[in-house]
């Protein structure tokens, strides 16, 4: 789906060249749910913008659905297949009525009006916002606005959606709405998801986590592999889930525990096993 070869990006300002990304080699396959973690300024957002040709590489190549992103003639083929959702829901809604906004993408693609209607209704159904079709965006909550933004991307029928910190400005219930929607898109519609986030619990839901630091990929693996590398994760300015932290500390206290744990269920089961063992001894 997305493949990069020695991908580099740098920008020039006042004869100073700043490298943002260095030699990124990544292959994201179809149907995958990938979370990207990293500190602010680690190059995550730049990476996202390179995936749909909003930015073009200054070195190396990015292939999106088999198309070289530098191929200007095919720029709209790339963009309609790789949808983008950004952090601030307010700054990505164009129209004053929800359904008009969802229709914006297909309208730009020149889709037939009757087909646009179908797509808009379908996309609003998928994100559970059909009843708000005629509402004004500024009367909606953050989570609802962000779901409209997702619907607007869905209406272009993309193969992949890249979400750049979509939950950063939301409250816990808004976050839950978005994460459930994203999971559903991946599981039920088979859409490839790239989720950039600061929340470890969101990353723990992905199939794979990529950690970026200083413009390079420094960890890449399953959530279990990545999140349980406690020292490494902390040194990168990130956090591990509280349950992982607990197991790490128990192990450090000399208990014989499995510290490859990233969710509550696993943690409880492991602790129960331990307690039972202790009783039997």
């Amino acid at each position: 789906m997305i493949k990069t070869e020695e991908l580099k990006f740098s920008y020039k300002s006042e004869d100073k060249v700043t490298d943002v990304l260095n030699d990124i080699n990544i292959n994201i396959i179809e149907g995958e749910f990938v979370a990207v973690l990293g500190r602010n300024g680690s190059g995550k957002s730049t990476f996202a913008k390179l995936m749909n040709a909003i930015l073009l590489p200054t070195g190396g190549k990015a292939y999106v659905c088999g198309i070289d992103s530098a191929d200007e003639d095919k720029i709209y083929d790339i963009r309609k297949n790789i949808g983008m959702v950004f952090q601030n829901p307010d700054n990505q809604l164009v129209a004053t009525i929800v359904e008009e906004d969802v229709a914006f993408g297909p309208e730009n693609l020149g889709v037939e009006p009757s087909e646009i209607r179908k797509r808009v209704d379908w996309a609003l159904d998928v994100v559970g916002m059909r009843e708000f079709a005629e509402a004004a965006p500024h009367h909606l909550s953050g989570g609802q606005k962000q779901r409209i933004a997702i619907a607007g991307i869905l209406a272009m029928k993309p193969q992949c959606i890249v979400l750049d910190e979509p939950t950063a400005m939301l409250d816990p219930s808004g976050r839950r709405e978005i994460i459930n929607t994203v999971k559903q898109l991946n599981r039920e519609l088979g859409i490839t998801i790239v989720l950039i986030t600061h929340y470890m619990d969101e990353a723990a839901l992905a199939d794979r986590i990529i950690v970026m630091s200083g413009g390079s990929v420094c960890l890449d693996g399953t959530p279990k592999d990545v999140l349980t590398q406690r020292e490494r994760i902390k040194s990168l300015g990130l956090d591990t889930p509280q349950v992982t932290e607990l197991m790490y500390n128990l192990k450090a206290c000399g208990f014989d525990v499995n510290d490859k744990i990233i969710n509550v269920e696993e943690c409880v089961n492991e602790l129960l096993r331990l307690i039972k063992k202790e009783k039997n001894d």
Partner: peptide, 20 residues
Amino acid sequence: MGLEIPQISKVILKLRENNV
């Protein structure tokens, strides 16, 4: 009310449910 408790407290709660 749409709020949570810390993840670690959930673990403790579950342990207590299991008679720990």
